[in-house]
Simulated scan of single mutants.
Amino acid sequence: MIPSVNDDLSADIEIKKQPSLTYEIKIDKNKMGTYVEGIEAIKQSIYHIINTERYQHLIYSWNYGIELSDLFGKPITYCYPEIKRRITEALLQDDRIESLDSFEFDYSKGDVLVKFRAITTEGEIEIEKVVKIG
């Protein structure tokens, strides 16, 4: 028999979603801006995750970033599904990103251009990433 607990404290707890405020990074101007939130904060998070090589920076958790450097020199038939898997694995660590779809690949001179769509809690985002494999 499982004992029942009469706990009055849990009845008054209200869970609120915290805003995803973060400093805006203006990459093209090489400076920081004001705060951004919502879909702009998620876009910035996606940019940082897919441009940070996993296990290379001590300040980040081992769950943060993506592993792409070991794809250099591998056959294109191996790289396409592996890039898709690794991008999906890296981005789904963020609980604001619900799913990824519409992956498209284009190979040119040792670079793979990947285009895909992220479905987030705030809406859909179209993303492009260039992966060097040759």
Results as ranks from 00 to 15, higher is better:
Ile2Gln: 09
Ile2Asp: 10
Ile2Leu: 11
Pro3Trp: 02
Ser4His: 07
Asn6Leu: 12
Asn6Trp: 07
Asp7Gly: 03
Asp7Thr: 05
Ser10His: 09
Ser10Ala: 08
Ala11Ser: 14
Ile13Lys: 07
Ile13Gln: 04
Glu14His: 12
Glu14Cys: 09
Glu14Phe: 13
Glu14Trp: 09
Lys16His: 14
Gln18Met: 13
Pro19Ile: 07
Ser20Lys: 10
Ser20Asn: 15
Ser20Gln: 07
Thr22Val: 11
Tyr23Trp: 13
Glu24Lys: 15
Glu24Met: 09
Ile25Glu: 11
Lys26Gln: 11
Ile27Thr: 09
Ile27Ser: 07
Asp28Thr: 14
Lys29Gly: 02
Met32Ser: 07
Gly33His: 06
Gly33Ala: 08
Gly33Phe: 01
Thr34Ile: 08
Thr34Phe: 10
Tyr35Asp: 10
Tyr35Ile: 11
Tyr35Leu: 15
Val36Gln: 06
Gly38Leu: 05
Ile39Cys: 03
Ile39Leu: 07
Ala41Trp: 02
Ala41Cys: 00
Ile42Met: 01
Ile42Lys: 01
Ile42Phe: 01
Lys43Met: 12
Gln44Glu: 06
Ser45Asn: 13
Ser45Ile: 04
Ile46Cys: 03
Ile46Asn: 02
Ile46Leu: 03
Ile46Met: 04
Tyr47Thr: 13
Tyr47Pro: 02
Tyr47Val: 09
Ile49Glu: 10
Ile49Thr: 14
Ile50Asp: 01
Asn51Pro: 07
Asn51Glu: 04
His57Glu: 14
His57Asp: 14
His57Arg: 13
His57Tyr: 15
Leu58Val: 07
Leu58Gln: 03
Leu58Cys: 03
Ile59Leu: 11
Tyr60Pro: 00
Ser61Asn: 14
Ser61Tyr: 12
Trp62Thr: 05
Gly65Arg: 06
Glu67Phe: 04
Glu67Asn: 10
Glu67Ala: 10
Asp70Asn: 13
Asp70His: 09
Asp70Trp: 00
Leu71Gln: 09
Phe72Ala: 07
Phe72Gly: 00
Lys74Tyr: 11
Tyr78Lys: 10
Cys79Val: 12
Cys79Asn: 09
Cys79Leu: 00
Tyr80Pro: 09
Tyr80Phe: 15
Tyr80Leu: 15
Tyr80Asn: 15
Pro81Gly: 01
Glu82Ser: 08
Ile83Thr: 11
Arg85Pro: 00
Arg86Ile: 03
Ile87Leu: 08
Ile87His: 01
Thr88Glu: 13
Leu91Met: 05
Leu91Ser: 05
Leu91Cys: 03
Asp94Arg: 05
Asp95Arg: 04
Glu98Pro: 04
Glu98Arg: 15
Glu98Phe: 11
Leu100His: 09
Leu100Val: 08
Asp101Thr: 06
Asp101Gly: 05
Ser102Cys: 12
Glu104Asn: 14
Phe105Gly: 03
Phe105Lys: 08
Phe105Tyr: 15
Asp106Asn: 10
Asp106Met: 05
Tyr107Val: 04
Ser108Ala: 06
Lys109Arg: 08
Lys109Ser: 10
Gly110Thr: 04
Leu113Ser: 12
Leu113Ala: 10
Phe116Pro: 02
Phe116Arg: 02
Arg117Met: 11
Ala118Phe: 03
Thr120Lys: 06
Thr121Arg: 05
Glu122Lys: 10
Glu122Arg: 04
Glu122Thr: 06
Gly123Phe: 05
Glu124Leu: 01
Glu124Ser: 10
Ile125Ala: 02
Glu126Gly: 12
Glu126Phe: 13
Ile127His: 10
Ile127Pro: 05
Glu128Arg: 05
Lys129Thr: 02
Lys129Pro: 06
Val130Ile: 12
Val130Ser: 02
Ile133Pro: 02
Gly134Asn: 13
